[in-house]
Amino acid sequence: MVGAVTIFAAAVLNATAPATAEVAGTYVSIGESSAAGPFFGRQLDPLGCFRSDRNYAHLTAEALGLTLRDASCSGAAINDMYVAQSLLFDAANIPQLDAVTEDATIVSVDIGINDYVAGGWSASALAPKLDALLDDIRARAPHATVFVMGKFQRLRAGGCFPRVPLPPDLAEQYYQGIQALNALLAERAAVHDAIFVDVYPASIGHDACAPEDIRWVEGVLPESPAQPMHTNEVGHYQEALLLIDAIRAHA
């Protein structure tokens, strides 16, 4: 199934790209595992980032003819935008903001879950970190259009035990947490004149509880290549389509 998805996704995305790209320039992608795309496609260096060559940033750049700098890395928190992130295999990822330079015309930011959970699921603790990050992106890339990526529905309300073997109270925390995080990301994007890419509505019903043939997010025991409770290759393809629409509308 995955191979067919890759071929189909490439064909459809290529078909969306005009003969002369509508959007010229350099696209920088920064963020956590939801941007990186662990465990499907070809995993790029540094290997500890588990960054796919078929994540939504790569698909978007391919469709629009953009030059891509993808600094995203699984496990990243906002602090890793500023300092090197230590990885497995004695490797490190660059401070992700090093990729954000004056020539950038598009920047996508896909961050927040790791900080949100580590901060006790507190939006108030995360907000000032997001504010500082968006200010720093603007200072480094003053001519860029900044896109703040929302988060997919990972689990529906109350979960679907035993299909996804998480107790209902934990599943509900996942559900409510994604809702709260998306609301915060949308709010801070608006304050900083960035575009919030609201991917959540399209993902409803494609969460880890959905049948395999329509699932965009894998469960605790993935049935398609993906990190547990993360977006699979089909989900990244769908997210690329949403980002492409946003870029064409705003960049």
Rank of each mutant, 00 (worst) to 15 (best):
G177W: 03
P167Y: 07
D193F: 02
V191H: 07
I195A: 05
A189G: 09
I178V: 15
A157R: 15
V220F: 09
V220A: 05
N182I: 11
A180T: 10
V148A: 06
M149Y: 06
G177A: 11
H206T: 08
L181C: 11
I195Q: 06
A186S: 13
G158Y: 13
G219L: 02
F152E: 02
P167S: 08
V199W: 08
V191G: 06
G205A: 10
L184A: 11
G177M: 05
A144T: 12
E212R: 04
P165Y: 07
L155D: 06
V217L: 06
C160V: 13
P225I: 14
I204D: 11
A202L: 09
A171Q: 01
Y200L: 10
P142C: 12
H143K: 14
C209L: 12
A183G: 15
F152H: 05
L181R: 08
D213Y: 14
A208W: 01
F147V: 01
H192G: 04
R156W: 08
A183R: 11
A194I: 00
F152M: 08
V217R: 01
H192S: 07
A157S: 10
A226N: 06
P201Q: 08
V197R: 01
R163P: 01
F147A: 01
E218S: 04
E187P: 04
D198P: 05
F152Y: 06
D169C: 14
H206I: 03
D207I: 04
W216L: 01
L181D: 06
A171M: 06
V164R: 00
K151M: 15
E172N: 14
